[in-house]
Write a protein that binds this DNA or RNA. Structure first.
Lengths: 340, 340
DNA sequence: CCCCGCTATGAAACCGCTTGCAATTGATCT
DNA sequence: AGATCAATTGCAAGCGGTTTCATAGCGGGG
């Protein structure tokens, strides 16, 4: 059995109340007494029991981070950014992914583990997700990450995909004004995909073009699926002088590989653009023109908002939008890569 | 204030003892009563308070995962594997990285958060790490991941780097029997680097060769550092008909890029091999010959051991070693890539 | 008819800590 | 000198559960 506050009290010859006061920086404790207590604590290597403390204080110093998946660099960077900031704020991070089957169910269970976390960050990427509905009655402060939930009563960290996507499409149009642009998305219900698709359609509309249905393809964000699909299309795309705009870097890399496998040149025969600017974008040859998403910053900012809310629970819901930025490399032609 | 067991008791018109019994599946509760209680629970959306429960049961259902870093796919995959298995076993995952400065200090703090976690997985990759010493008196069951701590009293998940590295070096020697082999490691104190270096030296010794000191280089596992370093050496290496064995894929990719930038051909002018078989290995051109490390499996296995120990605390310490495997692709020449 | 044993339930102790309130003490004020 | 006050410290009441032990009800055997 670990040492308890009582052991410390006995050793320092005071009551447990006094020990508790020393612990909680109530500076109402006499200097000498405090010293005795602190010595006792040190000698015993005492550490207060989290549960007992949490029971009174209703605080665990743990924040929950719920992601739709843990696969790939995208989420990994979010975690990294979140972890760093959480540490900075004195919190630990409980991480969980919500798979398709447990879905909302489980978020509530995680949350519902009453008091386990002081607050949560939930990343919502599926429109249909049951989470979205169950979010309303979360028993703890919530920050929604990258999920555009209207009428939200909670804090939100949004990413300006829209803007990034629009800029990218404009960039593509400026280089290839008449080319068809093939859009490769994730699932049709994926919010990011929807955003990017909207941006794509909007920009085309601006120049009076209407994308043909067959140029809008929903895949699943994975390299493998994209590679299989692209392998069957690259020749056709190339023949039509198309440009490919993939909704993430993995799929873009797959298209590049498929093109190369078909002995096409990228970008000469088939320009390709990605999204996110993960490490992948710099490792493929040619390197990917893409849109930089501030992944680590997303995690950090979400934690920051959460911590702020924990400190002042009554302030109005906050919404921050992080900027994105087009990164031009070689996979699309255009200006020779600027150092990057 | 959330609903408590007392609310449920009142609503079901029973005592809290009975509610508690229903909750804990003591099947000593009368069927009718149980039904009433369950209805009350459902109607109130009651969930037992984690702290109160933990206080009595001394159990949080949270496991800690402490990694040296959260950067890159390597750790990301470990987390993914661990998370999946943890869920399967009914646990949540608390993730933390130990940075150089807080080091052991903090592991104890995390652990020391008395009772916050029921057990921990600690990945130790630095010889000098203070963690290693503070590990002995962990107050909770511990699984050491990939750290070869001798005389260990805890469970261990080891990776057979040694074997993988030896096979890889033999493979290189079979292709380039007389070439100098340049070893690019992480920090000199990094345990994995040490293992791989030992394997490298052992195999060379077997064929009666002694690596020259200048062919053993310690960097820091990062792409950037490796790229800078390699950029200055590739011509020299190529001239000496050297082969590069990098201790991870990132550095191998950097060497490939540096070589390409110097208009060398890989593998013709400079064969390069990596380690880990992260996604990177498949995305570079040429793709990397490397050693597959079962990253997700490492995380999963560690959780598995931990859960088993939590169930039977007295069983003798267990040690499992996960196998690695050489993956031959194009960055080193050799047999034409087999499908992969 | 009484006692026994079994089942179902409630009362209360306890887990370790925080905190409001009362008590003690020595000093200051009138 | 008596009262007031500030500074310390201890007492004890929870926080919300689990669990031991006692109690109540009830059918059956002697």
């Amino acid at each position: 059995m670990a040492t308890s506050i009582e052991d410390v009290a006995r050793r320092a010859d005071v009551s447990i109340s006094t020990v508790s006061r020393v612990l909680n920086r109530h500076n109402v404790v006499n200097a000498q007494t405090r010293k005795r207590v602190e010595e006792a604590i040190a000698e015993l290597g005492y550490r207060p029991n989290v549960f007992a403390r949490g029971l009174m204080l209703r605080k665990s110093n743990v924040l929950g981070l719920v992601l739709p998946d843990l696969h790939g660099e995208f989420y990994s960077e979010i975690i990294r950014g979140a972890n760093l900031k959480a540490r900075e704020c004195g919190y630990h991070l409980l991480i969980s992914s919500v798979t398709a089957d447990d879905d909302g169910q489980d978020v509530l269970a995680t949350i519902g583990a009453q008091g386990l976390v002081d607050g949560m960050i939930v990343m919502v990427t599926e429109m249909s997700s049951r989470i979205r509905t169950s979010l309303g009655d979360a028993p703890v402060p919530l920050v929604v990450l990258d999920g555009d939930i209207q009428g939200a009563t909670h804090d939100t960290v949004a990413i300006d995909h829209r803007n990034g996507a629009e800029s990218l499409v404009r960039h593509l149009l400026s280089l290839y004004p008449t080319s068809p642009i093939v859009f490769l998305g994730g699932h049709a219900t994926n919010l990011d995909t929807i955003d990017r698709l909207n941006a794509y359609q909007k920009v085309l509309a601006e120049v009076g073009r209407e994308p043909s249905q067959k140029d809008i393809v929903y895949l699943d964000y994975s390299y493998e699926t994209a590679f299989r699909y692209a392998s069957e299309r690259v020749l056709e795309w190339s023949a039509a002088r198309s440009v490919v705009f993939a909704a993430n870097d993995e799929m873009a890399a797959a298209v590049v590989d498929a093109a190369l496998a078909a002995t096409l040149d990228v970008p000469a025969d088939l320009p390709v653009a990605g999204f996110d600017d993960t490490r992948i974008a710099q490792l493929t040859r040619p390197r990917l023109t893409t849109v930089r998403t501030p992944m680590a910053q997303m995690g950090a900012k979400a934690i920051e908002l959460l911590c702020e809310r924990l400190e002042s629970p009554d302030r109005p819901p906050n919404r921050v939008t992080l900027p994105t930025e087009v990164v031009v490399r070689e996979s699309c032609g255009g200006p020779p890569a600027p150092g990057s």
